[in-house]
Design a protein around this nucleic acid. Structure first.
Lengths: 190, 190, 190, 190
DNA sequence: GATGAATGAGCATTCATTCAT
DNA sequence: AATGAATGAATGCTCATTCAT
């Protein structure tokens, strides 16, 4: 009857509520109710609400970045091939865990993020940056600041998935295939 | 000494605070202090906090959409020319009123938005949609759902400006010119 | 209808409740109810509960020590005369403000007292000490540590008044006159 | 490894914590941690927190009063000799079990004391009273209410030991011998 | 019109107590 | 017998809102 893993129940509930209503718009009683635990139980697992968002943020980010780093980029591939593999991995993640993406997106600039969360975010961006730098060096990606290029691609990607997740846009294989093309066309040298 | 237009002072203060801390993370006393008015004064101008976000949202959106609709698109222009004009207008708006863009972006899916706000948002999207539809008909824009195309372009644009506004990316004329190209390349037929 | 001095109402209520139930046994709602104010109102006057006890403690102690320092000790008096004047002043205070004495007595070793409260307490004890020292030098008071002598006298005095205040012992002019004698006999050289 | 007597461990921990922080300032988890038992274990030995203070209070008081009643007062002694024996027994107890004295002192007026605790306290006071009455009859102790005289002596004694226990006054054989004299002088007929 | 003192509902958090293991 | 995870009532405190000035 009792769930064997209350910690996960709480994090799942928090993930969805934070995504829907934001950090300050979500109350501990809301999380407790959705997780089917008493309000006090939450404090057995998380020191306080702020620690909780940060842990959730870090777990989401690690999950996402590990998924990305898992992509097998062999040396013989050209950059476009690598880009497509990475981007498709991002799509795979977004389809599998839309709430995580949404949560990450809406909380990555929160005033409540602690140093560890910010550091982790920085590290992940560095990984993406180094990929883009490689493309610029080999002359296939436009010569714009790497963070700007990442921002453009990630913005397009995440905004689209936010609307898909909200049910405002219908997902289709064709759309997702085209999305990769769109993003590649946005940054490649013509 | 006293500001002649307290209503505007309040809205300006709210705009910035809502952008930085979100709706629920912003308190009426915070707004009152930043606007240099008493907390009670806010209730002379706005029925309550929820009405206030909605009015602010609607004013921002109207301001934005009027700015877009003001662009003079003469019949002789081709679609790319129109796109560039519209997009550059969006950039002009973003540079002039970065807080408004940021506020709009972070609040357009808020659970507290009322019907009027949602209706206005829909109308604005329709305007953009009809533009994209035109491009698809004339065979210069890819055959993807219009709202998806808008989402891609708007996502790229707004995410970049969010980072510029946060001081994480440096704005430059070259970057902004290239941004239009990127977005056009993302959706045009190659 | 509304009391003109809510701060005093709150402090009075807190004084009595803290005396009766201790710091931790007294809740903010209890204080609010007794003071006839809303619970939130208390926080307009006191940063938090801990600040409140400390302010109350300091005000009580200042009131008490000012009352003692007000006693006119002319140079021509001998030490016994001075002792009787001071002790009677203490009794006067105890009769006028029994709750203050009781509160002071039960809270002067509280773990929640801040540095300012402790400093004030130290200064007051120094005043008493210097009086006792004078008596020891002039050979009329026993040669024991001054703080021990103070403790003996104050202990006898405060314990008796605690029971009087609790209604367990009946106060009478004769008792109070005798109390001074008892205390003087306890410390004088025979 | 496990203590053979958890009940005593719990009472010892509670005694010290209640003395230092008061009844309401002490939590069950605090007691459990200090006693090296699980929080739930406490409820095997004590129905609830309130029963626990009362049992502790009663055990302390019985311990104290038995120690006092154990003093061998032979019929041939005069009252002063008896007083000195009794008082020195009190000092012996205070030196051996300072926490018990301190706990007793700070909790004997607690709102949470039940009828049994109050009855026991009354009985103990009656014992002391009858001793004082004897002295008054034989004309060596002043004619003041017995409970007042007890209060004066006990107040002086307990206050001094509170400060000794707190480390604010240094204990010395001379001080303790003098203390008896002080207290006797306070109440005897001169 | 403007204020900010006052309020109490509601928040994050703690803690006495229970109970499955 | 002993534990500590789980609970929810109750705490200290905040804040949207009201209203007397």
């Amino acid at each position: 009857m009792a769930s064997p893993n209350k910690r996960e129940d709480i994090l799942s509930a928090a993930l969805i509520l934070f995504s829907e209503r934001g950090y300050d718009g979500t109350t501990i009683p809301m999380i407790a109710e959705r997780a089917n635990v008493g309000a006090g139980t939450i404090y057995r697992y998380f020191e306080n609400k702020e620690y909780m968002v940060n842990i959730l943020f870090q777990e989401c980010l690690l999950d996402f970045s590990e998924s990305m780093k898992k992509v097998d980029l062999t040396a013989t591939m050209n950059l476009k091939e690598k880009f497509y593999l990475l981007f498709n991995q991002m799509i795979t993640f977004a389809k599998a865990k839309p709430e995580q993406l949404n949560f990450f997106d809406t909380h990555c600039t929160g005033y409540y993020l602690d140093d560890k969360s910010k550091k982790l975010l920085g590290e992940y961006l560095d990984f993406l940056t180094s990929f883009i730098e490689e493309g610029k060096k080999s002359g296939v990606i436009q010569d714009l600041p790497s963070d700007a290029l990442i921002s453009i691609i990630y913005g397009a990607f995440s905004h689209l998935f936010k609307l898909i997740h909200a049910g405002l846009i219908e997902e289709s294989p064709h759309l997702l295939e085209s999305l990769v093309d769109c993003c590649w066309n946005a940054i490649k040298i013509h």
